[in-house]
Design a protein around this nucleic acid. Structure first.
Lengths: 340, 340
DNA sequence: AATAGTTTTGCAAATGTTTTCATTTTTGAA
DNA sequence: TTCAAAAATGAAAACATTTGCAAAACTATT
């Protein structure tokens, strides 16, 4: 009867291959130091036993664990999914595996999931955004672990960051709408607590509108969580008011979709009656009918750069600049039009 | 000058708290066995030093690593994102962390990422679907690691599975379209190699159409990758043919969206001129305008159940049935209509 | 105050690997 | 053949923990 603890270890391999443990270890970590014939013997033994080396044991030697932690608010979100995927691919290319943890937009939980990642001795961590609790920042600093903030750019950031300037995104969107002659603009953004991205976008937009001498009445401002349905509902409310805006500026593309559907449902047309402006350029935004005008945030690029940089930091090659700013782009498509 | 290797370990904590290492260890793993006063002393020392316990070292003792591996084709995909998120949440609830790896719909790579997960000594693994290479299955069996297939249900599956019957989904969709009187049906599905979900859906649909005496001409069949844009393009092609189908049966909701947009772009209306049927019920499908008729696959439920079950398997409580079938539901919304 | 439990604690072995240093084997001239 | 240098291998210490066992410190009971 097979025992529970029969997982073959390096000792078993060594015995079967009739070499010492050290040689087996070396044949994995410094293959050039062991004779080809010996390596073959070892390989055969490994095959036969179904041996898989134990990273946990390796990690104990101050060796790297080969994992990078990623902390996200949620994975179930078009834009984060894209960042996560490209980040993961970038790590993969360097031989790392991604340990992921989500906190559901709760900065308290963020701290505790980060701790958990640290218990697993990740070689580095990436967090989304720059909005983190003091405890979180202190943990990172105290543990002296390579860390990087993804998604936002801020020249004053406390840890290295790679991303775009969300204030700028809000500003660009507002500016564009203003340039089309819109003066009656509805603002629909996600909740801004524990979410610096949304906050920055909103304040950027507000700043720009303010500069143009506009004030957005409260009836035209709403909060929508990240969901087409909710966004649609709040936009419908706004449209049902006595006077309606001639354009919607939305905190992200999902909200913008909601706005479009609400408009259609109200028997109005986009962009004929109402223009709709998104931020993000999610997958599919450009192919919708009508195609969504938006500010492109290069999620894939951000994820890839972040993955590369964190592995470099772990490897100790910090040659690259610590902060990287990714450029936004105004995408004029079909949901916006000159105010008539 | 602070040394590099100054990460505090359990020894440092023990010294500072003036107790033995064993006591510190116990205060983490069996707190009930150590006196409250002692525990407090230890906590204080831990605080002061910023000690974080090392899971890697724990794992070496046959103790569980506290991680579960998840292997997915891609994360950047509405439906997987939902499964991944709910799976992760379920694990979290049980104190596990998710180690994730994606293979980009390549079964060879799947094998190698699974191996990598195993090197990290995950306590269990979940894979998407039931389509895996022989090597992959053998690896799982040989390593005797708790494993579970997520997303598909099959009573004959080689490893436990939790999911829905995709053949059934295809069948239901086809049946519904037939019941509306449609006889001219366009079929747009993702590539079916290395993707048993799509394959099963397609064969289910075909089966049903066949039973009704229908054969779908080749001009009305297309492959679309997972992208609105591509789907839109191939559907547009189909619509440009001399005779066009009165309905599209789509392999998933994203493709269905593409079909809708293609139809609109061609100056036709949904469901007036063309009915569109999806499969999946992705987030937002119900809130689009017009709302998408589809077959609901309960992604969140599947992810949650899978997460629960794998932790139970790891804990050795295999009381639950090994296979779980989640029910599909026909959602009649606005993109389908009786053939006139 | 002594005894028998009971609760806490410490010692030391064990876990699966890597790595330094020393030793053995091989190689290539002389 | 012999010798030195180079290449390949092995022994053992080190890594950060957990845990079985035994010893020590308390409690409650007589």
């Amino acid at each position: 009867m097979k025992n529970q603890k029969d997982k073959p270890d390096i000792v078993a391999v060594a015995k079967l291959a009739k070499v010492s443990i050290s040689t087996v270890s070396r044949s994995y970590n410094h293959p050039d130091l062991v004779k080809l014939a010996t390596r073959k013997k070892i390989d055969r033994a490994v095959q036969k036993l179904g041996y898989i080396r134990n990273r946990a044991a390796q990690a104990m030697h101050g060796r790297r664990s080969g994992t990078i932690g990623l902390v996200v608010p949620t994975i179930d979100h078009a834009i984060f999914a894209e960042v996560v995927q490209s980040f993961s691919d970038a790590l993969d290319g360097e031989g790392f595996t991604m340990l992921i943890a989500s906190h559901g937009f709760d900065l308290e939980r963020e701290y505790s999931v980060l701790r958990k990642l640290l218990e697993h001795r990740v070689d580095g961590v990436a967090l989304i955004g720059l909005d983190h609790s003091e405890a979180t920042y202190q943990l990172i600093e105290q543990q002296e672990i390579p860390a990087i903030a993804v998604w936002n750019y801020d020249a004053q950031s406390r840890i290295p960051c790679i991303g775009a300037e969300n204030t700028e995104a809000g500003r660009m969107a507002a500016q564009y709408l203003l340039s089309l002659g819109h003066r009656d603009i509805g603002l629909v953004f996600p909740k801004t607590n524990d979410n610096d991205r949304a906050r920055a976008r909103l304040s950027g937009a507000l700043e720009e509108l303010d500069a143009a001498g506009l004030i957005v009445p409260d009836e035209w401002r709403s909060e929508a969580p990240y969901s087409i349905g909710e966004a649609k509902r709040v936009c419908a409310e706004i449209l049902a008011r006595p006077t309606r805006p001639s354009a919607f500026l939305c905190g992200n593309d999902v909200i913008a979709q909601g706005a479009i559907f609400a408009t259609m449902q109200a028997g109005l047309t986009v962009p004929g009656d109402v223009s709709v402006m998104g931020i993000g350029d999610f997958k599919g935004s450009g192919e919708m009918e009508p195609a969504l005008s938006t500010i492109r945030v290069p999620a894939k690029q951000i994820g890839t750069l972040a993955g590369k940089q964190i592995t470099e930091m772990v490897a100790g090659e910090v040659k690259t600049p610590l902060r990287q700013r990714c450029e936004l782009r105004l995408l004029v498509r079909e949901t916006t039009r000159q105010k008539t």
